[in-house]
Amino acid sequence: MTFDYEKYIRPGKLPHIWCPGCGHGIVMKGLIRAIDKCGLQKNRTAIVSGIGCASRLPGYVDFNTVHTAHGRAAAFATGMKMADPDMTVICTGGDGDGVAIGGNHFIHACRRNIDLTYVIMNNHIYGMTGGQFSPCTPTDAFASTTPYGNPDPIFDISKLAIGAGATFVARTTAYHATQIDKLITEGIKHKGMAVIEVLDCCPTSYGRRNKFRSVVEMMKQHKDIAVPVTAAAKMSEEQLAGKILTGVLHKENKPEYCEQYAKLINKVQNPTSK
């Protein structure tokens, strides 16, 4: 049976702006399948993004959608979730948006363990603005502002999220399309801050400069370096060099922010009750 994406796409809003071969569309489809699996109501779901190619996603899907300012998705979403804790609030956006300009909001949303699902599309580059390097551009890689190779070390987004306190952290790649919706579904169902990092590809601004001959080659590279966490447990350090772990990297239960605030209100309003 083929999945009916149209049910969730806003009539008349396609075609999208993404280049042929861009990974963002794969992630959007995964997100739609996950929302469908979770049975979310359109009116009770909000999708919030920042600015960038990845952040254009909300415009295409038929939910409450907020295309905010560069880097601010998590902060807008925090206000929305606090305002309406029963609404499902999902953030989407790029690596630059999420962990460069938006890094502060990102880590603090993780720290609060507020019940957001943050799907971050890590294509290792600032796609929208023409391929300047991001905090996720590999060292020595070429970008429009690293003509001699990138001198910067990178951020590991998933590790950052775990370190900052997110209680569900998972990673996959645009090659592993079916795993995308599986992990996002788990993230939505998880009570607390869920971060799903998807390594995806920007052939236009990253691939060309870094001598990838095709999108397939870029995706194949992700496939080759991806190691499921379960398999990694049995591998040596040498075997794991240069690999990235995929699957659910971290999961724990901790008090969720809006629930904590509801308790606070209850305590203030009913000082005698325990």
């Binding site: 300012a69 902060a75 925090t78 206000g79 929305m80 309003q269």
Partner: peptide, 29 residues
């Protein structure tokens, strides 16, 4: 605010604070 069932949040910076109030306002507050 908690006394009237409202919400108070101290954000990580002023940009975040402004973002949070815009988000909450969009939800009717």
């Amino acid at each position: 605010l908690p006394k009237v069932g409202g919400k108070f949040i101290q954000m990580e910076d002023e940009i975040g604070a402004m973002a949070a109030i815009i988000g909450a306002s969009l939800c009717g507050h």
